[in-house]
């Protein structure tokens, strides 16, 4: 469904992606891991066609998008919902207008029908009574959730989440994780989730990829990855993984945890 082939992306001299490959089959929920500044947000923007690539291909549903003109690209983008790391809400609009933006732009729904969708999506992200506020009046976590509601408003087939749970309290965090999982399992949405939160990663991910120095250094199912003896990967998982995962018999992991059995 989504495939990224040998993508290279540099900003001036700084190489961010250096021959990166990734396959995301339909209906999977892929978690992207990697150190801060390694290019995860850049990768999401490349998948959404927001950044050009220096080399390589990006395929979505059988169409190569890196060379597409705006019109066909926009056709594909209607299937995509994206939650930005900064939420990227429109300052000049109310929360309701933000969420209803795509409906307003691309459909003939009435005010009332849009209002209904807005209420429903806000309910999904556990917010209510903020419809008429401006983004500037919201807290960081609330903005994030409005951003998520906006990404869901057009019932996308593909959702790109850039750190959906960063800055949320543990309870809301768990709810958002459940929401991502439900969308994936019940509606067969293909999700791409960038997260630093290992609880979140293991709770939503059906596939995981690790990005390091512009390349893919690990890719697979969560249960396979935790057994992989890659120090960079294990170090990453270790610092935030739930305890039950750390109890798995993996020598590299144990070396880091210092939990040698002998």
């Amino acid at each position: 469904m989504i495939s990224v082939k040998n993508v290279r992306k540099a900003f001036d001299e700084k190489i961010v992606l250096n021959g990166f490959d990734l396959e995301i089959p339909r209906g999977e929920s892929l978690v992207i891991m990697g150190r801060s500044g390694c290019g995860k947000s850049v990768l999401l923007k490349i998948i959404a066609g927001l950044l050009s690539v220096d080399a390589g291909e990006v395929w979505i549903d059988g169409t190569e998008i890196t060379q597409l003109k705006r019109k066909p690209l926009n056709q594909i983008r209607r299937k995509i919902g994206m939650l930005f790391q900064s939420a990227a809400l429109f300052d000049s609009m109310s929360v309701a207008e933000n969420i209803a933006f795509m409906l307003d732009q691309h459909t003939d729904l009435t005010e009332q029908e849009m209002r209904k969708v807005v209420d429903e999506k806000l309910n999904l992200v556990d917010l209510d009574g903020v419809q008429d506020l401006r983004p500037a009046q919201l807290s960081g976590g609330m903005r994030k959730r409005v951003g998520l509601a906006r990404a869901l408003a057009f019932n996308p087939e593909i959702i790109l989440y850039d750190e959906p749970t960063t800055g949320l309290d543990p309870v809301t965090c768990t709810e958002i994780n459940e929401l991502i999982r439900d969308l994936n399992q019940q509606l067969q949405v293909t999700s791409v989730v960038v997260t630093h939160d290992m609880h979140s990663a293991f709770s939503v991910g059906t596939l995981m990829v690790m990005l390091h120095e512009g390349k893919q250094i690990a890719y697979g199912k969560p249960e396979d990855l935790i057994n992989e003896e890659n120090p960079i990967l294990q170090q990453f998982i270790l610092f935030g993984a739930p305890d039950q995962i750390l109890n798995i018999d993996n020598p590299t992991l144990k070396e880091f945890t210092g939990r040698q059995t002998e």
Partner: peptide
């Protein structure tokens, strides 16, 4: 330019609006 640096222009693009 504020919209640009706060990714609001990107958000417009991704929602299929020119």
């Amino acid at each position: 330019s504020t919209m640009k640096v706060t990714e609001q222009i990107d958000a417009l693009e991704v929602m299929g609006t020119n």
